[in-house]
Simulated assay, not measured.
Amino acid sequence: MQKSNSNSEDKQLTSRQTIFSMCGYLFLFLGMVLLDQVTKLWSEKAYLIESSLTNIREYTQTSNAIFHLESGLNWLHFDTTYVRNTGAAWGFMGNLPENIRPYFFYVLTSAAMIVILIFFFKTKSKLILTRLGIALIFSGAAGNFIDRVWLHYVIDWIHFSWNLFGWNYDYPVFNVADCAVTLGVTILIIETIIDEIRNRKAKKLAKG
């Protein structure tokens, strides 16, 4: 009888932990999407001067550097701006015909989000880092998907460029949603590396 009560208490505790964990991921998702949308709206209000009512590619914006690191090489520059990205990362496939482009990205992004969500729920709850990485990727995908549905383009506003040891590069403008996806992928890569190191150590110990 005592053992049965103990098992019941363990199940209740696990159930509570699962609920709290899911609430945490939900708040993370809502927070990242809200931050992404608010910063995009701020960018539009701050830097968009005028735009065409019929052509989303015709607009005029200004840029204001809010941080500039001076050095002998002037190696790093960061500013905020307003850019409409009609394609995927780096503007990929942004020049598709308008009767195809929005719907293509609707389907592509929806399918990707469904796969990510399935992967999240199939991942064991004890794999916290893995679930965190997936949740961040899903949050970023959702943030940009909202833009595509309502605007037919994605607003980007974070701009970096650098000149380091002769490497002069102007990085494509991005947003908070992109940061969430990048951070999520980085976490998954780190988790994979950690697991691989653990597995190799376990194999060595098994061999003696």
Score class of each variant (00 low, 15 high):
L69W: 15
L69D: 03
S71Q: 08
G72I: 10
L73R: 11
N74V: 01
W75L: 09
W75T: 04
W75H: 07
L76H: 04
H77L: 10
N85Y: 03
T86P: 02
T86K: 00
T86L: 01
G91M: 05
F92Y: 10
G94V: 01
L96W: 08
P97N: 11
P97E: 10
P97V: 09
E98L: 03
N99I: 06
I100N: 11
R101H: 10
F104L: 12
L108V: 13
T109H: 03
S110V: 05
A111H: 07
A111K: 09
A111I: 15
A111S: 14
A112Y: 08
A112T: 12
A112S: 14
I114E: 08
I114M: 08
V115L: 15
I118D: 04
F119D: 01
F120P: 02
K122T: 11
K124M: 06
K124E: 14
S125T: 12
S125P: 06
K126E: 14
L129R: 05
L129Y: 09
L129W: 15
R131H: 06
L132I: 09
L132H: 03
L132P: 01
G133Q: 10
G133M: 09
A135Q: 10
L136T: 00
S139M: 03
S139R: 05
G140Y: 04
A141H: 02
G143W: 03
N144D: 13
